[in-house]
């Protein structure tokens, strides 16, 4: 017999009973369909307590790592604290330590915290203004001694939130930041696997975090990063990424321009088209796709058709509000 805690209430899980059964019996509205571990509708997360192996079968590795599990396949072996998927995130305050332009419309924003801020590079957080206006932004760095998170903020035309970040927020200001979310991040297993990173615009932010994380973990497989923008002046972090490519034999950086004018040294076309033309077979590759939803959706399908397993395709589509 084990105890399950959900949103500060405790439920008894009988022997031979699954988490799903126990919670439904207790009146918790956990969504479910098949009760067999196939449909994955009853995906929940353990905040405390290790889910048994059976409860994580068939899940993406990054979900496993974050202790997500299927309630219908979980016969708990210890007490667990569980969060249902839709429970709202916890916020805390950070202080703006840097806001400097990376190119004509994209700003590097750094926010520092008093205590360690735990995250996996590639995850995103919600930033919140005092009046409650909220937007999601990807974290662009790896965990720092200084407890600082970095973000790439592009000024969107008539984007209320990005204009506020660009025009009004100053260093020293306080801003509310949610706990990190998302399962588009690197895990240090299968380090010989090829990594394909394709991003458009500020989709580079999570990919930079993922890239730095993989390099720090001494990933041995080849790593290809394709960054797609329209014109040369829309690129940013180019020098840094070129230096990185020079230092690491297994890392290649390809800036791609979809606009008309393409100087020597840049690939012409959409980043995902260039990536697909460069890499003919993606079997056994791990693929990370971040940025424009059209690119992400098309590339997901193409990467899958070129042999990447669906569970090895990690995507973060950016929708602008």
């Amino acid at each position: 017999m084990t105890l399950l805690t959900v949103a500060d209430k405790t439920y008894l899980c009988e022997k031979e009973e699954t988490v799903l059964e126990a919670l439904l019996r207790g009146g918790v509205a956990v969504p479910y369909v098949c009760k067999l571990g196939s449909c994955q509708t009853c995906l929940v997360r353990s905040l405390q307590g290790t889910p048994p192996e059976l409860a994580q079968m068939g899940l993406k590795d990054t979900l496993k790592k974050q202790r997500y599990f299927l309630a219908c396949r979980c016969y708990p072996t210890e007490d667990m604290t569980i969060r249902l998927s839709d429970q709202s995130a916890f916020y805390r305050d950070g202080i703006v330590t840097k806001n400097q332009m990376l190119n004509h419309n994209t700003m590097l924003l750094e926010i520092k915290f008093a205590d360690a801020f735990e995250f996996y590079p590639g995850q995103f957080v919600n930033l919140q203004r005092r009046d409650g206006l909220t937007r999601s932004y990807s974290i662009a760095n790896i965990p720092q001694q200084s407890n600082t998170l970095a973000f790439h903020i592009r000024r969107l035309p008539e984007g209320r939130f990005s204009e506020w970040l660009h025009d009004e927020l100053e260093t020293g200001d306080t801003i509310a930041v949610s706990e990190p979310r998302g399962h588009c991040f690197y895990l240090p297993q299968r380090s010989e696997q090829g990594l394909l990173l394709v991003g458009t615009g500020t989709g580079l932010a999570p990919l930079e975090g993922i890239l730095l994380d993989a390099l720090q973990h001494q990933h041995t497989g080849v790593i290809h990063l394709f960054h797609g923008v329209c014109e040369v002046n829309d690129l940013y972090r180019s020098d840094f990424l070129q230096d990185l490519a020079a230092q690491h034999d297994n890392f290649t950086y390809t800036p791609c321009l979809s606009g008309k004018f393409v100087p020597v040294g840049f690939a012409k076309g959409y980043a995902h088209d260039v990536a697909l033309a460069t890499l003919s077979d993606l079997k056994n590759w791990r693929v990370f796709l971040c940025g424009h939803p059209d690119m992400v959706n098309q590339m997901k399908r193409q990467a899958f058709l070129k042999g990447a397993a669906m569970r090895d395709i990690y995507a973060d589509a950016f929708f602008s509000a």
Partner: peptide
């Protein structure tokens, strides 16, 4: 065309569970 891959994969899972005679809704 235009279908969300993750959602499609979920539907295929449900399809196979059904085709294999597993309980389904």
């Amino acid at each position: 065309d235009g279908a969300d891959m993750e959602k499609q994969i979920d539907k295929q899972r449900a399809f196979f569970t059904m085709a294999f005679g597993g309980p389904n809704n």
